[in-house]
Write a protein that binds this DNA or RNA. Structure first.
Lengths: 119, 119
DNA sequence: GAGGCCCGTTCACAAGGCTTTCACACGCAC
DNA sequence: GTGCGTGTGAAAGCCTTGTGAACGGGCCTC
């Protein structure tokens, strides 16, 4: 049999991330992500449902220790949130844990009090 | 009877590529492509919906590793885009993923009409 | 052999996207 | 209110990609 190196496919709700193919799918549709955005999403997805500190995320994605005052992680989390929100409006993916870091999990966005804003 | 090697027919939306016949059809009409253009289209079609890096594309089509600074892939992607755009104006086929590479997928070109209100 | 044509390659510049860094707004705890 | 941590929009510069064109080689025709 082939020495099959298992292909890594990270699934988080309707989100599917394939690090080997450098692609992320939202409900089967490819997301357009920059390199940093993609790398950040991959590392979060690999640690799905766990809280990951900024220091760890930065080291993983930027390959260098986080300097005091650097807000890059926050900025890129925001960029990812915007794109994920646009692709899958009914779900929240990146959750903030104040003082600890971020956690990636698929959670239905607040089921009550949902505006019927026509879009 | 025949050695049962299935004939390869790659379909991407209205695009049909037949490597064995060295022909590509757009909505049933043959495209006029050079060898390089055709080979590039074949390799992209074989990896439809996946992002393919310049390095991989160059190795596949040119049969030699990509040298730093070589823009051949970009140039041929452009040539292909022009011909595909001419043949099927309402569809986008080759999508750029900055920092990653190119992806071949049939996607309707901008569904919204862009006006010139400068807004 | 000369001229014309494609084709492939390379270059130069234009365009546009990406990363980084700032500034300020917000919410919560004290 | 004050301080701290996070959200968010924008500016600036860098880097990647898009694009038109020049150059040269191979091939066909005359």
């Amino acid at each position: 049999m082939e020495a099959a190196r298992p292909i890594e496919v990270l699934v988080v709700g309707q989100l599917e991330v394939r690090p080997d193919e450098s692609i992320a799918l939202a409900a089967g549709h490819p997301l357009t992500l920059s390199v940093r955005e993609f790398d950040l999403l991959v590392e979060l997805a690999r640690r799905k449902d766990r809280i990951v500190s900024r220091e760890e995320l930065f080291a993983l994605v930027w390959q260098t220790p986080l300097r005091a005052g650097d807000r890059s992680v926050d900025v890129y989390v925001h960029k990812l949130r915007v794109k994920l929100e646009h692709a899958l409006p009914d779900w929240d993916f990146i959750h903030t844990h104040v003082g600890f870091g971020y956690r990636l999990s698929a959670e239905a966005s607040h089921p009550f009090h949902k505006d019927a804003t026509g879009r």
